[in-house]
Write a protein that binds this DNA or RNA. Structure first.
Lengths: 197, 197
DNA sequence: ATAAAAACATACCAATTAGTATGTTTTTGA
DNA sequence: TCAAAAACATACTAATTGGTATGTTTTTAT
């Protein structure tokens, strides 16, 4: 990797970590500089301003890992979508190494914090959200064709419902700061999915 | 009402409106002062600092309306808890006059924004959340005794699942900024509740 | 090798922030 | 009525913020 690209990536990764733990607005540029050992000149060479860096975090860090964890499993799916959905949710909540109960889901955090006053952030995040929604809806519809899912089930409805549950349990996790809520949630999530058969 | 109490309430109400729309950290004290026409001296007479005002918003504004909209309906319940849960969710999402799709749920916003760095806020909000959870769980358990709900359903699981859905759909609403997601959510919420019979 | 461009470094600045110091006015209780 | 306390007003401050101006160093292409 070129050295300049390494600098940029270093900024993005460290900044992401800070923003994930502390929130975007309470993470100052000076703080990013001191943890990256990058100077202000270098920072503003790579990013026009703070918000452009924020968008870059979404597009260059969140988006790719989101693709791998949230979309790929659903797209390559041939078998039972309900089992798949549960396994995916279990993996994301219980086995993901980046996200913690205490700090929730980066995408969700960003949404909550930025939606009221930054259109660009919201648009970028809405893109991710919509992709996930569509992938779930499609998987459910395919499941209907393969006899895994009842015919009167609506894929889009399920997708919105599942997404809501995910955003919500992440939020709740931050509040109670204990993985046990994830377990409770997953139990009922399984029951819910079974009710779609 | 005493004049001093009116000043305090005025600050809290206007500050709440600003915080709800713009977020807590991006709402400056100076901004609160200019919209309330209250001077800094008066503000700091009533509140030790900004965070104490934030806590007061939770305890003196959010909590009471939360009691009325989220708890009372569940506690005074004798009939079908599943119908009640749907009606309550419908009322909160579609008919509440304070909350909008664009700005979501104040309690949820607070949680997301403050959890990473303010213990007091989180504790206060966790109190509200737990009360709601317990009220839902109790209602479901009573519903089991009255034959409205299947015996193998777990009240606490349902409560966590319902709460998650609510937090989540509020978050999603902010993202897409369109009430139609509420409608979609409610449809599936109804199906889910029916599956508990 | 060398000029030009890319990449980075340092010192600064204007604006905003929460909060304080020090007043004045208003209310209250005896 | 009148002193004391409550309630409010004004001017200020120290720290932090995102961002810029102006450099120097490093890389790249010829």
């Amino acid at each position: 990797m070129k050295k300049a690209a390494a600098t940029r990536l270093n900024i993005l990764q460290k900044a992401f970590e800070l923003v994930y733990v502390k929130g975007y607005q309470t993470t100052s540029i000076d703080e990013i500089l001191s943890t990256t050992q990058v100077t202000k000149g270098a920072f503003y060479y790579h990013f026009k301003n703070k918000d452009e860096m924020g968008i870059a975090i979404i597009n260059e860090l969140l988006k790719p890992t989101f693709e791998i964890n949230f979309l790929e499993p659903l797209r390559n799916l041939t078998g039972d979508p309900l089992v798949m959905l549960y396994d995916m949710m279990y993996g994301i909540l219980m086995e993901n190494e980046v996200m913690t109960v205490e700090h929730g889901c980066p995408a969700s955090n960003f949404t909550q914090e930025m939606a009221p006053w930054n259109v660009d952030f919201t648009a970028a995040l809405n893109g991710l959200s919509n992709q996930w929604k569509q992938a779930i809806a499609d998987a459910v519809e395919r499941g209907k064709q393969n006899g895994y899912v009842r015919q009167d089930v609506d894929g889009e409805q399920v997708a919105v419902f599942v997404l809501s549950g995910y955003w919500g349990i992440r939020n709740m996790g931050k509040l109670v700061n204990n993985e046990s809520v994830y377990v409770t949630y997953l139990q009922q999530f399984k029951s819910y999915l079974e009710s779609l058969r």
